[in-house]
Design a protein around this nucleic acid. Sequence first.
DNA 1: GGCTGGTATGTAACGGTATAACATTTCGAA
DNA 2: TTCGAAATGTTATACCGTTACATACCAGCC
Lengths: 168, 168
Amino acid sequence: MTHATAAFPESRHDHADCVERTLAAAERICRDRQARLTPQRRRVLEVLLADHVAVGAYEIADRLAENGRRPAPTIIYRALDFLIEVGLVHRLASLNAFIACGHPGSAHGAQFLICNGCGLVAEISDPRLAGAVAEAARRVDFAVLRPIVEITGRCPACRPGLRGRGDA
Amino acid sequence: MTHATAAFPESRHDHADCVERTLAAAERICRDRQARLTPQRRRVLEVLLADHVAVGAYEIADRLAENGRRPAPTIIYRALDFLIEVGLVHRLASLNAFIACGHPGSAHGAQFLICNGCGLVAEISDPRLAGAVAEAARRVDFAVLRPIVEITGRCPACRPGLRGRGDA
DNA sequence: GGCTGGTATGTAACGGTATAACATTTCGAA
DNA sequence: TTCGAAATGTTATACCGTTACATACCAGCC
């Protein structure tokens, strides 16, 4: 619901369109992989798509409770496991929470910028950052399986003073 | 003293010496900052120094229980908060666990390589990686407060086949 | 149709992680 | 020595995630 400003990626877009396109992509991806995007799983995804903020599993359950019974944690975690597996959702380790993938479909290493003001999470896919991770690991002969990059800070809109300045 | 498994830092060192030097550094750092490294806090640090593996708060409590009563979680978390505050301990978000800082004293951005074979954690401080994080954030005008980089994978010793190959 | 097996969902209980709220003790400085 | 701040102790509780087991759904096949 909230829209931030300037360069922070998830800003000021047509969010209804954003949701719709992501859901369409989700349907397509699941069809391609012969995975079933059941109503349950879809509802969980929709909760995560509601805004670009990370949501905990229990919070997801609460939101689903608004129309019907509150699903047990297991239900939510199973749906999340599925959605993560097919690449539609990411887990944020530093928040113990989940967020819809910003660009599903394209295989990508993702990094996250987490605003501790408004809670907005920007997913970026920075090749140089990914490269630096790979290089650092290579240097010590470490085989990377799962690189986690979660940067907590302040998005442009939540910084008092210099507002609306983006520089790239 | 060569490090056997090539570059993965925490290999085959004189660990008794490692512990002793870190504790000495801890004493010095706390004195300098007029912070009190009380017996309780020191014991928690000692548990974390026992090996280069991340340990959860409850596990720390268990280990402390071996000589005396098991401290309540609060006790442990308070000690950890202190140790983190003065830079002697890091928290690993992806494991919900804690590890002694590899080079306390020097202000440093740290990144972690976590072996999912043996559990060893290597703390590195790679300026290029830190720089890539800073640059990625700058590009979208994001003010970094707390960059988390935790790379799960396999250390050289835990990789079957190609052993002892380090290339930097 | 009615099996049959795999996938998905439902239910209950529990274990691990972390904090809140409040009481007590310790310690250093006035 | 008294006083306030820091540290510790105790209890309860909230939040995150999994285990174990039961049931329902949905093919493909006889």
